[in-house]
Amino acid sequence: MSRTAKTVAPTDSTPVRAQNSRRGIVVPLLLVTVLGGTGALAVTRPWERGESTTRQAPLSYGVVAVEKGSLSTGIQAGGTLGFDEPTPVVATGRGMLTALPAVATVVKTGGRLYEVDGRPVVLWKGERPMWRDLGPEATDGPDVEQLKRNLIKLGHAEGLGLTADQKFTPGTTTAVKRWQKALGVPQTGTVTLGSVIMLPHSAVRVQHVGAQLGAAVGTGSVLTVTRTDLVATVQPAENQLSRFKPNGRVTVKLADGGTVNGRIRSLIRGGANGGSGGDDNGGSGGGSDKTTVTVALDAQDLARKSGPSSVVVSVVGDSVSDALIVPVTALLALDGGGYGVKVADRSGAAARLVKVRLGLVADAKAQVSGAIQAGDQVVVPK
C-alpha cells in the first residue's frame, strides 16, 4: 500500500473538525490501537465537543487505496531452534575414561556411549538408573525388569521364553551372556554397575563432552546428551501468553527461510531447564522468570536442514481472505455508532462519507464492507 503525495484540500466533506449536520457529528478517528493482536479497537478522540482555549495545528491529509487481500490477528514471537531435553550423563563405578564420542554423535539403544578401562559403556532405555550389579544373585526389583526389557528388545532373549518381570532367572543369565558376547566382553552373566547407562530415550545425540580422556569416572558429568528431535522454544511477553495454548497449532519460520508447522507441547513458568551450554545447541538456558513455551515440530527433516538457530513462532488467530482492507487511521467514528470512511474523488478535491461495516482488525489495518471497492482512495491523516 502506498500513499500518494497529493494533499486533500479541506472541504466541507474533509474531516478536519467535528461538523454538525442532519447526519449527526462525524469525529475523525485519529488514534486506533490494536491491543495484543486481538482485534480490539480503542478509540481516542483528539478533542471533545465545545470550545477550546488551545488552538491546534491544522492536520494534513492524504489518500491511500483500498486493498483486497488477507488479514489475520496472529501474533509472532522470536525464539530458538535447538535439540530437545539436554541431560547430563554421570559415569558410575570405577575406572578411567579411555574413549569418548564426538559432539553430534547419535547413539541408539544398545550402542556405545563411551569406554572405561577399554570396555564399552552401553546405552539402554529406562527411567531408573542402575545402582547395583545385576546377576544371578540379584534380588527381585524393578531394575531387573528394566534390564530384561532391554535384553528382549535387543534380541538377546530369543527362544528363552523370557518375560519382562522382576526376577533374575536362569534365562536372564543366558540372555546377558549373549549380549556380552555380541559386545565383545567377558561372558559373566552379570551386568556390572557402570557398564550400562539408563536413559528414557531410544536414541540420544551428544551435545557436549564434559570430561577428558584419562579422567577417573565418578567425578562429574561425562557427557550432555539430548533427544534427536529439534524443538522450537520461545518466551512470549505476558500479554501474548493467552494465545499460546497447550496442544495449540503454530507456524515456525526457520532461519533458512523455510516454514514448518508445530504443536505447543509444554508451557513452563519460570523458564525451562535448559542445558549447560552445548557447543552447537540453540536451546535456551534456565534462570528466566518468563514462561518458556516448547513447540514440537511436524517435519524434522526441514528443521535439520536449518539447524539450531533463531526462529519466529507465529500463532494464527482469526483470519479473513479476499477482504477489503483500509488503514485504521481511515476510520471515522460516527455519532450514533458505527464507522465510516471518506472516499476521495479522482481529483482529490472532494470526498464523500461512506458508512462501512467493520470486520477484523489487526496490524493497524481493518476489514471493511459497504459501498466501496478495491482501488477507491480513502482519506487518511498524514
Rank of each mutant, 00 (worst) to 15 (best):
G161S: 03
L154Q: 02
K382A: 10
E51W: 09
D279L: 14
T11I: 09
R263F: 14
L324Q: 01
Q76S: 05
G282D: 00
K167V: 14
R205L: 05
V378P: 01
S314F: 12
G338I: 03
R249T: 14
V122L: 02
A350S: 10
V90M: 04
T224M: 04
T172F: 00
R263V: 15
V144T: 09
G62C: 04
V260F: 10
N281C: 06
G307E: 01
A211D: 01
G111D: 00
A138C: 02
I372M: 02
R45C: 11
T87D: 02
L193P: 06
V43T: 13
W179C: 11
S2A: 14
S266G: 14
V368G: 05
S221A: 14
A5H: 04
R263I: 11
K177D: 08
L151E: 01
E238S: 15
D280K: 06
G270V: 10
N150Y: 05
S221I: 11
P120A: 10
Q207K: 09
G141K: 12
V343I: 09
W124M: 13
G285A: 14
G62R: 08
A215N: 15
T54H: 12
S72H: 04
H208I: 12
E51I: 14
K305V: 00
R3M: 12
A232M: 09
T174L: 08
T33P: 04
V380K: 01
V313L: 13
D140G: 15
P46V: 11
T224C: 03
I197C: 02
H156I: 01
G184M: 06
A323K: 05
P136R: 07
E51P: 06
V328H: 02
A9K: 06
W47E: 15
A57W: 13
V116Y: 07
R243L: 13
G135H: 02
G126R: 14
L297C: 09
R346D: 10
Q367C: 03
T38G: 15
T98R: 04
G36T: 11
M130P: 01
A303P: 06
V89H: 03
E238N: 15
A330N: 04
Q166C: 10
V250F: 12
P170A: 12
T259Q: 09
V234F: 05
V32R: 09
T173L: 05
V26F: 13
N261G: 11
V316R: 12
Q300T: 01
A237E: 15
T294M: 12
L193R: 00
L183E: 13
V293C: 12
V315N: 08
A303M: 00
G336H: 06
A65Y: 03
G220W: 10
E85W: 05
A138I: 06
N150M: 02
V315F: 10
I152T: 05
